[in-house]
């Protein structure tokens, strides 16, 4: 008889469902990372995720946990509302760059500054995915999109916004790291960061965010492989990886 050993299975926190994300998209990878962390920390039965408006609006199709779908940009407020109402829950706000870095800047800044005890997973793919490839607040200078057909001109369309750097200077933020998912090594780093973020939330230490630079081959008009290269070469250049903040908010 042939012996089989399970090396890696589907995390409990993920449903057995085929994801609707495009080939080469980073969402599926990050979903899986989150689910693995939820399993490892044993928090599936007290976990609530917030699905944003964007490609991951249906994130709750894939997670085998409670979920709450939020209006565009408002996920940090919804997450904090849940956390304030039921502090025993572990709450994740999962947001894209249009959601978090454009329409939702007020909510993310104030959630961070108030030290809301939530974890934000920020998927930065420098484009509006769901609406079809328009310029995002994080779109790189010169990058083409359906609303910057000649490439983003900062004189007309402003500069790509560096959210992690911004939030790190706020006294209320506890832990901010930027990672990517372009290789197994980077995936592992992302997982480590996300796990740390949830652990800090479990200890009640305050606002944590992991910004993940993530490929969007469809809207970048690149192959999945070239999209990874775009992240590694172009995005990382403008959005450096690393920990931007890791210090206790309150000293008492």
């Amino acid at each position: 008889m042939e012996k089989k050993k399970l090396i890696r299975g589907r995390p409990d926190a993920l449903n057995d469902k085929i994801m609707h994300y495009c080939p080469g998209c980073g969402h599926g990878i990050v979903h899986r990372i989150v689910a693995e962390v939820v399993d490892e920390l044993g928090i599936k039965d007290r976990f609530v995720g917030i699905a944003p408006v964007g490609c991951s609006v249906f994130a709750y199709w894939y997670f085998n946990t409670d979920f709450h779908q939020a209006a565009h940009g408002r996920a940090p407020a919804v997450a904090s509302g849940i956390k304030r109402a039921r502090p025993e829950l572990i709450v994740m706000s999962y947001q894209g760059d249009g959601d978090l870095a454009a329409i939702g800047t007020a909510e993310i800044v104030h959630a961070a500054n108030r030290g809301e005890n939530i974890t934000v997973i920020f998927i930065n793919n420098a484009i509006y995915g769901m609406t079809g490839g328009q310029m995002a607040p994080t779109t790189l200078i010169g990058q083409k999109s359906t609303t910057t057909p000649l490439g983003r001109d900062p004189r007309k369309a402003g500069f790509p916004i560096k959210i992690s750097e911004m939030l790190a200077v706020l006294p209320g933020s506890r832990y901010i790291e930027r990672t990517t998912v372009t290789s197994p090594k980077e995936v592992n780093k992302t997982k480590k960061a996300i796990k740390k973020a949830f652990e800090l939330q479990m200890k009640g230490e305050g606002f944590t965010m992991v910004e993940v630079l993530s490929p969007c081959p469809t809207n970048w008009r690149l192959t999945p492989k070239d999209a990874l290269k775009f992240v590694e070469e172009k995005m990382v250049e403008y959005y450096p990886l690393g920990v931007f903040k890791d210090e206790p908010v309150f000293n008492d």
Binding site: K83, A106, H110
Partner: peptide
Amino acid sequence: TESEVATINYLYGAAGAGVRC
């Protein structure tokens, strides 16, 4: 909160969590 926009969404979260708010 920081605004009425945030307020109603805090309410949305808390109401979803099933508490009187």
